[in-house]
Simulated assay, not measured.
Amino acid sequence: MDDHAFADLVAPHRRELLLHCYRMLGSRTDAEDALQETLLAAWRGLDGFEGRSSLRTWLYTIATRRCLNARRSAPKAPVPPFEPPAPSRRGEVTWLQPYPDDLLDGVPDAAPGPEARYEMREAISLAFVAGLQRMPPRQAATLILRDVLGYTTDETAELLDVTPTVVKGLLQRARSAKSDAATPVGDDGLTDRFARAFAGRDLPALLALLTDDAWLAMPPAPHEYHGHDAIAGFLTASPTWQYALRLEPARANRQPAFACFLDDAPAGLLVLTPRGDRVAALTRFLYEGVA
């Protein structure tokens, strides 16, 4: 099989495999690297593919194992580009990146079996993906394969090269560890009100749009700010607030977001996690990979 024929063969699966790698790794950059490694391994091993499983499942097997290898080392957190106030706490998942909604177009929103527990909207949210990063790698892989993709226990065992008993144990621990945060849903006017308050640097109006337990994070820095006072302290110290940033509506992880610009220069991405008619979390991505 030549390069073009192989590209045509795997093309229907590229977007869902990239999404799978993103869930496993939490970083779009790392996911793209893992996908390339997966396709290269598949190309090299195609002669040995015996067809005992579908091509899709075989590719998921390769991708999952590449991601498990990649998770053995996590990047170090960088220093923020300004002097922030003391954080409420330091986050563990400093490598988290947003996932543009346009990359989700064309990804099947149907599981291959009845085992799936999550719909696409919930299984791509920032909270869900961050929760996966806090799990041991094989627990995260098991939760994704069983509860997101809908593979059976036996199929998951074959994918991970373990016994069904091991899968059941991993899944039980993963379900116990995962966050039960609700799927982000907001009313249609929430993002408009937020944009007006932010653009006008109206801090009281912005804080009024936040839930009482709202928090702000700024990957890849580990700083997190919990509660109105901490968020207000961060914003007033941050160039994000001091300069007249222009916000343009965007979407990431099936959540409302804003592309930020200083004059015409990209200045990152601000992702909102709504809860009802208010915002429960702000995630400010400042570095490369967020344009």
Rank of each mutant, 00 (worst) to 15 (best):
L68S: 10
L68E: 10
N69P: 00
N69A: 13
N69E: 15
R72I: 05
R72M: 13
R72L: 12
S73K: 15
S73Y: 14
P75E: 05
P75Y: 05
K76N: 07
K76V: 10
K76Q: 13
K76D: 12
A77D: 09
A77P: 04
P78C: 10
P78M: 08
V79N: 14
V79M: 12
P81M: 08
F82A: 01
E83G: 02
P84T: 03
P84V: 07
P84A: 14
P85I: 06
P87V: 06
S88T: 13
R89H: 12
R90V: 00
R90E: 14
G91N: 08
G91C: 06
G91S: 11
G91E: 11
V93W: 11
T94L: 02
T94Y: 12
T94C: 13
W95I: 01
W95C: 13
L96D: 05
P98M: 06
P98I: 03
Y99K: 03
Y99Q: 10
P100C: 14
D102P: 12
L103M: 10
L103P: 00
L103G: 00
L104V: 03
G106W: 01
V107G: 09
P108K: 02
A110E: 14
A110D: 14
A111Y: 07
P114G: 03
E115H: 13
A116Q: 11
A116G: 13
A116D: 09
R117D: 12
Y118H: 14
Y118G: 04
E119M: 06
E119P: 00
R121A: 15
I124L: 12
A127Q: 15
A127P: 10
A127E: 15
F128I: 07
F128V: 02
V129S: 04
V129Q: 08
V129M: 04
G131N: 06
L132Q: 09
R134D: 00
M135Q: 12
R138C: 07
Q139V: 02
A140Q: 01
A140H: 04
A141C: 04
T142F: 04
T142A: 13
T142I: 09
L143H: 13
I144G: 07
L145E: 00
R146N: 00
V148D: 08
L149R: 05
L149H: 06
L149Q: 08
L149V: 03
G150D: 07
G150L: 03
Y151C: 05
Y151V: 00
D154G: 03
E155V: 01
T156N: 02
T156R: 03
E158C: 00
L159T: 09
L160E: 01
D161A: 15
V162N: 05
T163S: 15
V166W: 08
V166A: 14
V167E: 03
G169F: 07
G169Q: 13
G169D: 08
L170W: 11
L170A: 09
L171R: 15
L171C: 02
R173M: 02
A177Y: 04
A177R: 15
K178M: 11
S179V: 06
A181L: 11
A181R: 12
T183I: 14
P184T: 04
P184C: 10
G186R: 04
G186L: 03
G186D: 03
D187H: 09
D187M: 09
G189Q: 15
L190N: 08
T191W: 04
T191M: 01
F194A: 08
